[in-house]
């Protein structure tokens, strides 16, 4: 069909171009007629458009069915032989990590999130009752009372001139920085050192605030664990094998409660649900737990 129409078009173009000069002498309108025949294509594109619509509808139906199945699974995911209560799961994990260096035995909790396509991804930080490590925080302030209180709350460094002088020498020994508005003028010379590392305090990011907020932030962030959703899974670090069962259980509870609350705040047509949740470590098999 395609080759037929194209050959007609080719012939007509060829002939019409050959006869172009003669048209004025002896007009032959009959030759132009086949050109109209070569425009049979629209019927085909229509069919394609219809086929496209049908396949789109099918894809939509398939996606809806997949979502239905996933939503149903969030209620029944513990119905598997891999499901154990948390203490037994920890027993399995500890046994499979026996004799490994402690810093290689981090335990992770992985959530499967069921959400519509295009829903905003979950990310943030959770302050843990028993943190894996203390985040090193620096507080720039000229208020000595605040500096003392910040150090007590868990800040690694606090102060004004002595801390700024140390940074000028190239000693940047912190991962997060806060500042009170009164010292912002003095931070100008070290902005080039801090800026590229993302450590420069900034009112827009909320790292330049009043004393009370800084203390609250230091308390929260010093023992916090950060998380970021990737595709439809979310993995959070819980602790290490050398933590006690009670410490790990408290961390697990805090994390699951936080993720549950956070998933409720996401804006979407249907609520974001938490599906299969797995507890695992580097060398252990994944064990399904209920949250």
């Amino acid at each position: 069909m395609v080759s037929f129409t194209s050959s007609i078009r080719y012939n007509t173009i060829k002939r019409s171009s050959l006869l172009a000069g003669y048209n004025s002498v002896s007009s032959r309108p009959a030759i132009i007629l086949p050109l109209t025949r070569s425009y049979a294509a629209p019927a085909q594109t229509n069919r394609r458009a219809i086929e496209g619509q049908v396949s789109k509808e099918l894809a939509k139906k398939k996606e809806a069915a997949r979502m239905m199945k996933l939503r149903a699974e969030t209620k029944t995911y513990t119905n598997t032989p891999l499901y154990f209560d948390v203490p037994t799961a920890l027993r399995f994990i500890r046994a499979s990590e026996v004799g490994s260096p402690v810093n290689q035995t981090t335990i992770n909790m992985t959530f499967r999130l069921v959400a519509e396509k295009g829903t905003a991804m979950l990310q943030g930080s959770i302050p843990l009752p028993k943190p894996l490590r203390q985040t090193k925080i620096c507080v720039f302030t000229s208020d000595e009372r605040l500096a003392k209180a910040a150090k007590e709350a868990g800040a690694h460094l606090a102060g004004s001139t002595e801390v700024i002088e140390a940074v000028k020498k190239g000693e940047i020994d912190f991962e997060l920085a806060f500042a009170t508005p009164d010292v912002m003028g003095q931070l100008g010379p070290i902005a080039r050192a801090l800026g590229p590392k993302g450590l420069m305090p900034n009112a827009k990011r909320g790292t330049v605030t009043d004393a009370a907020t800084i203390l609250e932030q230091v308390r929260e962030q010093s023992g916090a664990v950060t998380y970021k959703q990737k595709a439809d899974t979310l993995s959070v670090t819980v602790g290490r094998v050398n933590f006690t069962d009670a410490e790990l259980a408290r961390n697990i509870l805090t994390i699951s409660q936080h993720i549950k609350n956070q998933s409720k705040t996401v804006k979407s047509k249907k609520p974001v649900l938490i599906g299969k949740t797995i507890l695992s470590s580097l060398r252990s098999p994944g064990i399904v737990i209920s949250v």
Partner: peptide, 20 residues
């Protein structure tokens, strides 16, 4: 012994620390 048997011993004796 470490790879195959020690995990089984640790599983049934969770309170005993085992160093390698």
């Amino acid at each position: 012994f470490w790879r195959e048997t020690l995990p089984q011993i640790q599983f049934h004796n969770p309170a005993i620390p085992m160093a390698v």
